[in-house]
Design a protein around this nucleic acid. Structure first.
Lengths: 203, 203
DNA sequence: ATTTGTGAACAGTTTCACAGCG
DNA sequence: CGCTGTGAAACTGTTCACAAAT
């Protein structure tokens, strides 16, 4: 894993997503190219990092590839605990997170600065005021946070999360978060995503 | 713009986000490094693509940099029209999209396959059944779609959007969408983002 | 016959290091 | 003097093209 290039890792994650919704028994690099848009050459190299030796002719066995991806990324180990920080409209929309059912990730807590929110809303896991964040994150062994607060609270809550020893943040806010190098951030805010689309499109 | 490398474009978008929330009059490449985590060398090169000549010593003038970014990315031209496809919990959470207020993007329509949804919900822009998608996208000159449907509808609605001539899709579903090369996709689904975080983190 | 897996060539991106500017 | 802007070097990632596998 150590020496899989970063762009390859991102593609392999998408390959895992792709194969999860793929029903054929076998798949060729050519077929993946049609479905995902990357060149078949780079797909073969990406897959070669996984160390599967498929046996040519019919392409890869879907199940074998998926297993190799899970193994390499440790998606078959212990389930990773996550929390939602910010229970506004967006945070509430993620509360059920049916998407994560059957995945390697599980939301085990929600936080909001407003005690009102944490008391009124209900979910299958406990909702706490942010004052209990440190305690909960440590006790529940939470690795990742999903940040869905207002932009004026974003950096201060990111700071708090870092203090709690979080390993990564999914940033749904339109802010650039300042965090130490060992804390990873995925920026998935709507405005950021729209600006990126628009900018990648210009010839 | 033509020859700004893709990784540089992504950073420049984040630089734009960063500066939008930055109140000092001047900023140095060193300061950006502290805030965003990229090396000061690469920041200077990224900015050099914009063709601003700042005049050393005190770093860049924040306002000048922001203006150059807006100019380069055409954020100061006509507002780009967007639509939400899928009015479930997530789609509804994006309906107000206060985030886009004062930006280069505006949501002008929402769609759902269920007429029920489009009739019951209310928003500042019209909600239509997907049967009216082609008509509306053309009439309203909609460039970008925000896809928040269930995973079993994701590809078929992506197909429809492509047929309507959409330029890019913000994909909030956990699916990999198959689209022509000239249609761009930003994958911001929760599961995809969590898997990416986890995979980028492994040493 | 078809498709993988991979050295070697190529292309793209980042870093280094320093001249030049205010 | 501190900071930018940028050639040139170093590094990283992608594509080519073909031998090996079945």
């Amino acid at each position: 894993m150590k020496d899989i290039p970063m762009p390859a890792r991102r593609r392999l994650v998408l390959l895992e997503r792709l194969l999860s919704n793929y029903t054929e028994k076998n798949i060729t690099s050519q077929k993946i190219q049609e479905l995902a848009g990357w060149s078949s050459a780079i797909i073969r190299r990406d897959i070669s990092y996984l160390g599967v030796n498929c046996g040519a002719t019919n392409g890869y066995r879907t199940s074998e590839l998926l297993a190799a991806l899970s193994r390499e990324f440790n998606f078959d180990g212990e389930v990773r605990h996550c929390c939602i920080v910010g229970l506004g409209r967006m945070g509430q929309a993620l509360l059920d997170a049916s998407e994560l059912y059957d995945s390697a990730f599980k939301i085990v807590a929600g936080f909001d600065t407003s005690v009102n929110k944490t008391e009124v809303l209900s979910s299958s896991f406990p909702l706490h005021p942010t004052t209990l964040m440190k305690k909960t994150i440590i006790e529940e062994k939470i690795s990742y946070a999903i940040l869905t607060v207002d932009k004026d609270e974003a950096q201060s809550l990111a700071n708090l999360l870092v203090e709690c020893g979080i390993k990564g943040i999914i940033n749904y806010t339109p802010c650039v978060l300042t965090v130490p190098k060992d804390v990873l951030v995925e920026n998935v805010g709507l405005l950021t995503a729209l600006e990126t689309l628009s900018v990648m499109g210009e010839v």
